[in-house]
Design a protein around this nucleic acid. Structure first.
Length: 280
DNA sequence: TTCATTTGACCGAG
DNA sequence: CTCGGTCAAATGAA
């Protein structure tokens, strides 16, 4: 297929190394900006306040007691565990745009397949209560059912590429039926998720190389990357139109940086997405 | 060494 | 008591 030739033409190991370095520079630069101008925007202190609060709590909190009496309390009362949406896919590696961390796996009585339990990777950092269950429900052809619970309060969705990479049509055809709805939060998410973050995330996704989507979902983004992405996201105000607006030439240093490093090779990342993100 | 995943134990609901 | 959901120690990968 054209995939290999395309990738080979642009994706030598040297280029990848350069991209990785550039991306690392972008993170470092943003961090420096944040440190130099911590109050540049109203939300920029969130990260540090979070970190400091965590530090203080860890240093002053008493050592964990072996109290197991209620530590494993089941949390699914009717209101909390109400199912938000369901998604069936033949692809177990279907990528819904969010990062999940697996916290359990169970054999289900009525099914011969195990069910996996995930919670949002930002569960701690952003107190995000979103969870999902994933289970194979059919063998031939394989169908994997993902059931979503709770709401993403982290507002970090890496799956805005569809609207940004001009693959929306193909997405609409096939993926609309897979759209994940979170009830009344939809508008909020749609707005908050369509920021400049996508461009940066795209950069990173491209550097994931030959990893499978499953590996990417579970391992591809390190905690450092996530922090960096948070920083990037928080430097971009969501576009009121709900679409990505390229940085203007008269923009801030951040904008200039974006245009220099992140947007420059957008086409390459778009093509990456086309191939690697299974727009079948 | 750090961090994500695995896995068995624990818990509450039915 | 059974079952599904969650916790957290153990494990493994990077």
């Amino acid at each position: 297929m054209a995939k290999t030739s395309t990738l080979n033409s642009m994706n030598t190991s040297h280029e990848k190394a350069v991209q990785a370095i550039l991306y690392g520079q972008s993170c470092a630069k943003r961090l420096k900006l944040q440190l130099d101008h911590p109050m540049a925007d109203g939300r920029s202190d969130n990260l540090f306040s979070d970190l400091s609060s965590r530090d203080s709590s860890s240093s002053s909190s008493p050592p964990p007691l072996p109290q197991r009496s209620h530590s494993k309390k089941r949390k699914n009362n009717k209101t909390n565990s109400s199912e938000n949406s369901r998604h069936d896919s033949p692809d177990p590696n279907y990528y819904d745009g969010f990062l999940w961390r697996k916290y359990g796996q169970k054999t289900i009585k009525q099914s011969k397949h195990q069910r996996s339990y995930y919670r949002c990777s930002y569960n701690i950092d952003h107190a995000c209560g979103a969870r999902k269950h994933e289970q194979k429900i059919k063998d031939n052809p394989p169908v994997y059912r993902t059931t979503y619970f709770g709401h993403h309060t982290c507002n970090i969705n890496h799956n805005q590429d569809a609207g940004l990479t001009t693959v929306g049509d193909s997405v609409n055809d096939l993926e609309n039926s897979r759209m994940i709805w979170f009830g009344e939060d939809l508008d909020q998410e749609k707005e908050s998720h369509t920021s400049g973050l996508s461009v940066s995330v795209k950069h990173e996704e491209g550097s994931i190389k030959e990893e499978t989507m499953d590996q990417y979902r579970h391992r591809g983004i390190t905690s450092h990357d996530k922090d960096c992405q948070n920083m990037i996201k928080e430097n971009h105000q969501p576009s009121p139109s709900g679409s990505y607006t390229p940085p203007s030439s008269s923009g801030s240093e951040i904008d200039m940086f974006d245009s220099d490093l992140l947007v420059e090779d957008l086409d390459l990342w778009d093509r990456y997405d086309m191939y690697d993100f299974g727009l079948r």
